[in-house]
Simulated scan of single mutants.
Amino acid sequence: GSGVGGRESGVGSQESGVGSQGSGVGSQSPTPDSRPLTPVILLSPDGELFTQAIAAELAAEPRVLLVCGHYEGLDERVREALITRELSIGDYVLTGGELAAMVVVDAVARLVPGVIDGESIAEESHSDGLLEYPHYTRPAVWEGREVPAVLTSGHHGEVAKWRRRERLRRTLARRPDMLARAFAQGLLDKKDLVYLADLGWAPEM
């Protein structure tokens, strides 16, 4: 029920050590130091919050096994013996972990090299601590609203500058907590800080 195929996940019944007779726990429970090398992740409201950084980390793994609890979750003995990590997709409760597993699979799979062009995800929201810039398509004018002139200017340097500033402005307006973290992690340069100061933002020292 994890949404991960048996062969592709590389986790068989012998590796998991979980019995198939309906008891939920095999007759010979593995010791903690015999946990599989493959990450065995339980989707649980008790877990650490799933983030883009964790998605990138999991995308680098050759394989991952997702375990979905249901209603009251998972037998604690299995949790202690087999689970290597617990993840939560938010501070709320679902009937089971299946939907959470689908979220993790989608977020991780798109970061696997070759799935999506690398340039397409380089400036996405959360990729480097900021939200993404606005996007526009044709027509140039819709319902009286125009595409920003800089985007049709053909000046690549000015377009890049506009995009960076829009990312800063949008993050400040919608997720100031992310902006503070980006500053703490050294992701903002001097030009960013000057622009943010013009918008009335200053980092807490």
Rank of each mutant, 00 (worst) to 15 (best):
Q21M: 14
A101G: 00
E80R: 14
V105E: 05
I41N: 01
P62R: 06
S20P: 09
D192L: 04
V25R: 08
K190P: 01
P30G: 02
G1W: 15
E8W: 11
G157M: 01
A107L: 03
G1S: 15
L188M: 08
G154K: 06
A55Q: 00
G26M: 07
G12T: 09
G22P: 07
E48S: 11
A122R: 13
R165N: 10
E72G: 07
S16D: 12
A184Q: 15
E8A: 14
I41D: 02
R145I: 13
A184E: 14
A100Y: 03
P203H: 06
G1N: 12
A60P: 05
L151E: 06
V93Y: 12
V147I: 12
V78A: 09
E132W: 15
P134G: 11
Y136T: 02
M102F: 04
T84R: 07
E119L: 12
V93C: 03
G154R: 05
A180D: 13
R110M: 01
S13V: 15
P39N: 08
C68I: 02
D177G: 06
S127K: 08
A56F: 09
G22I: 04
V64Y: 03
R181V: 13
R145G: 02
H70A: 15
Q52M: 12
A55E: 07
E132L: 09
T171I: 05
E132T: 02
M178K: 09
T31C: 11
T95Q: 11
D75G: 04
R165Y: 07
G96Q: 10
D128W: 04
A59I: 01
G3H: 01
G90S: 12
E146H: 14
A149K: 15
R145A: 11
S16T: 13
P45T: 10
E119R: 14
L193S: 11
L49D: 10
L193D: 01
V194H: 09
A56D: 15
V105Y: 02
C68K: 04
G186A: 05
D177Y: 10
E204N: 13
P45G: 08
T31D: 14
A56C: 11
A202Y: 08
L199P: 00
H135G: 01
E123G: 04
G96E: 08
P62D: 05
R35E: 03
C68S: 05
V194L: 13
L131C: 06
V104N: 03
G5E: 15
I116M: 13
S88C: 10
G1A: 13
E146W: 10
A160R: 14
G90K: 10
P203D: 00
V64K: 03
R175I: 08
G200T: 05
A55L: 11
R63Q: 14
M205R: 13
P45M: 01
V11N: 00
V147E: 02
G96I: 02
E158T: 07
A55P: 03
R77D: 09
G96P: 05
W142Q: 07
A60Y: 00
P113F: 10
S153T: 00
V159Y: 00
P62N: 02
A109S: 15
V40R: 04
A81F: 00
R35K: 15
D189H: 11
S2Y: 02
W201L: 09
K191F: 01
S34V: 12
G157E: 10
L179C: 07
E80I: 05
D106L: 05
